[in-house]
Nucleic acid binder design. Structure first.
Length: 426
RNA sequence: GGCCUCAUCGUCUAGCCCGGCCUAGGACGUUAGGUUCUCAGCCUAAAGACUGGGGUUCAAAUCCCCAUGGGGCUACCA
């Protein structure tokens, strides 16, 4: 059975690159019916922090990556590493230097492995220095702990970033010395920042939760991440997770590093928002508004549902719903000065608003069609284009020149609010 | 520097393994037009790439070599 692992260090939040590595592991496990194991590499006691661990686990869950079994903490396995290190000393394959245990690398030999993505890669041991196994402070080094754990945890496939390619021969030497079976390796390309380097804080958001905060939906982010270095073929780009699992195979992952493109993520996000089942979208936006402190428990969910429906096609992120919310629920509107200048400060502006308002006041039914009919009729009577009435009204009731269809907005807002807002310009 | 690795539109990629169907396809973004009450959306169109040089072959984006460029590693970090 396939057993893969994701091994984060709780020394920082889960960033885009690691999330993508986790995703490929997870997809491969689900695709093959195998297991996805989490190992926490917290050997660095100083830099490790439980808060980071919570954030990493929370990010994984948010992105649907449920793991199998219990978490393994390296910090709880120091005895194990020590035992194996001492066994190597015993076998004269390692030696002590002070309090540290160092692995002796035999020179003039070749080490190779068949990477699932890159094919055969080989190295000369002349390039590899003797490796510290146990540091003088009694903690194991990364390469050593990694080998012991992957072997002990019966990991069959090591899927990790290709920055680990050069670590692989060192690890293979250790697998051999320890008599462990060597797993399959798959080194996936790194995600690069716009200037070609490693993705880092400096290049904007890298933490998964930052994306959540910016209003991206989990489905879109997972979809986008999967597309970084992998393509299902047939020009398919938008694919639900079930489909991804079905089609994913590490063997089809690219060798080339991919640059993170916020524009495309944004577009994917808009697609997911547009096509999301309406009740789910309402729930997601509600959750988002709550997180942002825009709403509390008393909140007109029915009205919000209508608003979401009216705006979902023109929304790119959940964040866009914040300003939409304010238009409909804040008693004090924020006006775009330029818009007011353009549509409500003309010589005939007041006259237009007064006339429109009068019509609206007398309208028997205040719904989309009735309002539209009334506006078109009035425009006709005034020998004006409907647009000449529509634009000023939109600014008067929403403060902006952009937004959903005017009649939709008015119907949602309701007669009282519409009349009250228009009164300001009479 | 040494070692490893990668190389198709600005970006993500399809094609490459198993050469011909590639006058290189799709998507994002950009630009133009259409639709509408605005914006967005949607529809249509346009511009836009095989890093360079050598081979191999009747034929190369696809195979080989070299160069160039990018990235990674070169820690008692992970």
């Amino acid at each position: 059975m396939v057993r893969v692992r994701f091994a984060p260090s709780p020394t920082g939040y889960l960033h885009i690159g690691s999330a993508r590595t986790a995703l490929f592991n997870w997809l491969y496990a689900r695709h093959t019916g195998g297991q996805f194991i989490l190992r926490i590499e917290d050997t660095d006691k100083v830099r490790s922090n439980p808060e980071f661990l919570d954030e990493i686990l929370g990010s994984l869950k948010w992105l649907f990556m449920e793991w199998d079994g219990e978490l393994t903490f390296q910090s709880k396995r120091f005895d194990l590493y020590k035992k194996y290190a001492e066994a190597l000393v015993e076998k004269k394959l390692a030696f002590r230097e002070g309090a540290a245990i160092i692995f002796k690398v035999e020179k003039e030999r070749r080490v190779f492995f068949d990477d699932m993505i890159h094919g055969r890669i080989d190295f000369s041991t002349d390039e590899i220095k003797d490796q510290v196994l146990m540091k003088s402070d009694g903690t194991p080094t990364y390469n050593f702990a990694c080998v012991v754990d992957d072997a002990q945890m019966k990991i069959t496939h090591v899927i990790r970033g290709d920055d680990h390619i050069s670590n692989t021969p060192k690890q293979i030497l250790l697998y051999n010395a320890l008599g462990f079976e060597i797993p399959q390796f798959a080194h996936i390309p790194l995600i690069l920042s716009k200037d070609g380097g490693r993705l880092s804080k400096r290049h904007g958001a890298t933490s998964i939760f930052e994306y959540k905060n910016m209003g991206f939906v989990a489905e879109a982010l997972v979809n986008y991440l999967a597309l970084m270095g992998w393509a299902p073929g047939n020009d398919v780009e938008i694919l639900p997770i079930a489909e991804m699992i079905k089609l994913f195979d590490v063997k089809n992952v690219n060798k080339t590093g991919a640059t993170f493109d916020m524009d495309k993520l944004g577009w994917l996000n808009s697609q997911y928002i547009k096509n999301m089942e309406i009740n789910k979208l309402i729930a997601e936006t509600k959750e988002f508004l709550k997180c942002k402190g825009v709403i509390d428990d008393k909140f007109d969910e029915k009205k919000w549902g209508e608003i979401v429906l009216a705006y979902k096609e023109r929304t790119r992120t959940l964040e866009d719903f914040v300003s939409v919310y304010k238009i409909f629920f804040n008693s004090e509107l924020e006006y775009d000065e330029k818009a007011v200048e353009k549509y409500l400060k003309k010589p005939n502006s007041k006259d237009i608003i007064v006339k429109c308002r009068a019509v609206l006041e007398k309208l028997p039914a205040f719904d989309h069609n009735s309002i539209e009919g009334a506006y078109r009729k009035l425009a006709d009577e005034l020998k004006m284009k409907p647009a000449e009435l529509i634009h000023p009204t939109r600014v008067a009731i929403s403060g902006k020149t952009v937004g959903a269809g005017l009649f939709e907005m008015m119907a949602i807002l309701g007669r009282d609010a519409v009349l009250k807002r228009m009164e300001k310009f009479c």
